[in-house]
């Protein structure tokens, strides 16, 4: 477990040193949501109706924004080669990097989401479900996004490419994330949505590291 923790600590330290990156993701998140009232008009009822969906779409987009630097720097300076050659299973190391990425970008999104709920006139009863659905959903975004980051290493067009590859695969997360919040807001039991989100997280945790490890190995061949 020591290499896992060491890698996690190293990535978090790197992220903290470039604190601006995490800040940028949150700023983008807030900015995208801010655009919607300006585009559809400031009517409170409409905003309240579409608010949770907008927050989820913005979370999806802003987590894609930071995806391309997950492996890029390690790929360029050669430390990725060392990780692949290390005796520790590459799948676990991938998990450590993804976890660090989630802590530095997913977590700030979750913390910022109630503020956006206020801006979008989501009824205060919904804040809890927004936070919970993002807490289950953003790790999936980081996990599946890491596949795109690994596949596009060394590609001619990095950033937009990842979004094109990964966003279609993330549609289930969006659907269940938003419907969890909406059924909660409608005072209906939203337990099944949360259970499905949780199941998707577990499946992603189990399968994604293998895909990412395969992608990294072929990128370094």
């Amino acid at each position: 477990m020591a290499p896992f923790l060491a890698l996690l600590k190293r990535d978090l330290k790197l992220a903290a040193r470039h604190g601006l990156d995490s800040f940028m993701v949150v700023a983008f998140f807030v900015l995208v949501v801010t655009l919607f009232p300006l585009a559809v008009g400031p009517e409170q009822a409409i905003l309240g109706r579409i608010g949770s969906g907008m927050i989820w779409v913005a979370a999806l987009l802003s987590s894609m924004l930071s995806m391309d630097r997950l492996f890029q720097q390690d790929y360029e300076d050669g430390s990725l080669d060392l990780l692949v050659l290390s005796p520790m299973a590459l799948e676990l190391l991938v998990l450590a990097k993804t976890l660090a990425h989630w802590i530095s970008t997913g977590l700030p999104l979750i913390i910022a989401s109630p503020l956006l709920g206020v801006l979008m006139n989501v009824s205060s009863a919904g804040y809890g479900t927004v936070i919970l659905s993002l807490a289950l959903g953003t790790p999936i975004l980081s996990l599946v996004g890491s596949i795109g980051a690994a596949l596009s290493l060394g590609a001619r067009r990095g950033g937009v490419l990842i979004s094109l590859l990964i966003l279609p695969l993330l549609i289930p997360v969006l659907v269940f994330g938003v419907s969890a919040v909406e059924t909660g807001l409608a005072d209906l039991p939203s337990r099944s949505e949360f259970l499905i989100l949780g199941a998707m997280l577990l499946v992603a945790l189990a399968l994604v590291p293998y895909a990412v490890a395969a992608a990294l190995r072929q990128a370094l061949e």
Binding site: S152, G154, A155, L165, P168, A211, A214, E221
Partner: peptide, 24 residues
């Protein structure tokens, strides 16, 4: 299709795109 053509080395594009197709 885009991933397949995104690399200077065609065989890399093919392998990356294969992984994407299986994940999909």
């Amino acid at each position: 299709i885009v991933l397949n053509g995104a690399f200077d080395d065609a065989s890399r594009g093919a392998r990356a795109a294969s992984i994407l197709a299986v994940v999909g």
